[in-house]
Design a protein around this nucleic acid. Sequence first.
DNA 1: AGTTCGAATGAACGGTCGTTCACCGGAGGC
DNA 2: GCCTCCGGTGAACGACCGTTCATTCGAACT
Lengths: 241, 241
Amino acid sequence: MMTPSSRPGGPEAIKAARTTWRRSQIVESAARLMEEHGFHDMSVSALAREAGISVGTVYQYVDNKEDVLLLVIEDILKAYAQQVPQAMSGIADPLERLAAGFLSYCGVVDSYQTATLLAYRESRSLSRSGLHSVISHEIETTGLLVAELDAAVAAGTLRTHDTALVGSDLVFLAHMWALKRWQLRDRMTVEAYGRAQLGLVLGGLIDAKQRERYAHLLAVPGAASAPARAAARTRAGGGRR
Amino acid sequence: MMTPSSRPGGPEAIKAARTTWRRSQIVESAARLMEEHGFHDMSVSALAREAGISVGTVYQYVDNKEDVLLLVIEDILKAYAQQVPQAMSGIADPLERLAAGFLSYCGVVDSYQTATLLAYRESRSLSRSGLHSVISHEIETTGLLVAELDAAVAAGTLRTHDTALVGSDLVFLAHMWALKRWQLRDRMTVEAYGRAQLGLVLGGLIDAKQRERYAHLLAVPGAASAPARAAARTRAGGGRR
DNA sequence: AGTTCGAATGAACGGTCGTTCACCGGAGGC
DNA sequence: GCCTCCGGTGAACGACCGTTCATTCGAACT
């Protein structure tokens, strides 16, 4: 015997659906406004107007203005946490796992450029716990890449190196796609970008005897200099390298 | 016959000296406060208090609040413009010039960490002309490094590559010292950091036949694997790699 | 039709801010 | 001593903001 509150579509479900709906209205509108104006020059009344709701309604669904910022950034943290491990799963080779994880990371940065920028720009406006959340997620994701770097070093695929620094470099270079988009966006696709950076970093690390095996990750002239270059250009869809 | 206004130490000189003095009081105090609070959460009254002057005096020497931000950032732009070319001068080899320029750039970032951070965080609060100034200076300095990369490629020292992207990478990795200082600062000195990043980037670019000649720039195991590693550790003064 | 409840509203509130300007004090000149 | 000028001061001003809450509206129930 189902009670009224446990029926599918009952009041709780309606309320939860409304909360989810209103929150996404608020978050999407906030992302648009913050992309243009930043956190500080976005007023809550402008946000309400953009979302098509009243100021009081905003406060029914978020605690305060900083909460809005946090919700926008949490979207990207969730995407990292989901998409990066997923891209790496089912792949046995550490270097291939690294490549898949890094390219996926770049893809998330591309899809959430505003959130990436906000995480850098507005870290001062986050609460302690909000900032801690951002940082610990980054450490966690960096750790996934570092683990593969370590495995590749142990397998002799990569030369010995400071893998923690390399992992941080990769994450930072992924962020560069958003932070320096004024410089990069008109020059290449995010996929070409990710492959170029991966090739550059790995090119300095890879054991000489492994270059041919991973030539598809290096994307720099190697033994098959001319063909690899022509192939890379085709893949980038005309992006200049 | 010198007129009163042209005498050394005349009223204009006194006024100019006072302006310079007051401005530096304001800029130094602002840098301190913005490091902790950011631009938005620093009030002009707090700035006046920190500088030990009145609010009205602040406005005698700066036009408005944004002007303060611009003055802080202009300090670092001036330092780049002066120190990077200077570090590169008198060196004939393109790769050595590149190394000197990049390490100098890292040094400037280290000395002006607040300004580096502010340039990223507060670009939204700059006027059009202020932002244009920041961006064009960055393009200019990146261009110095790119020119050396191009020269090294032409000399056959480096393999063919997208030198514009590599130049941007180097500049961005220099900024990383400030942006990710929470991760890096306790692990290595800025010099060790600069050398590690330079070695990583160049390691992926350098022609195999040139590795031995530039082993001091690569700082990765090469032909003299064990000695190079021991030397690098000594140079870093205990920094872990 | 009347009542109740929940969601939405937007004016009001209290606070903070960037900027201005009337006033003051000190130094220099006569 | 008196006057003028310049630099400094900080309260006042006007604007804007984040947040709250008294009120209204609409839907559902009796």
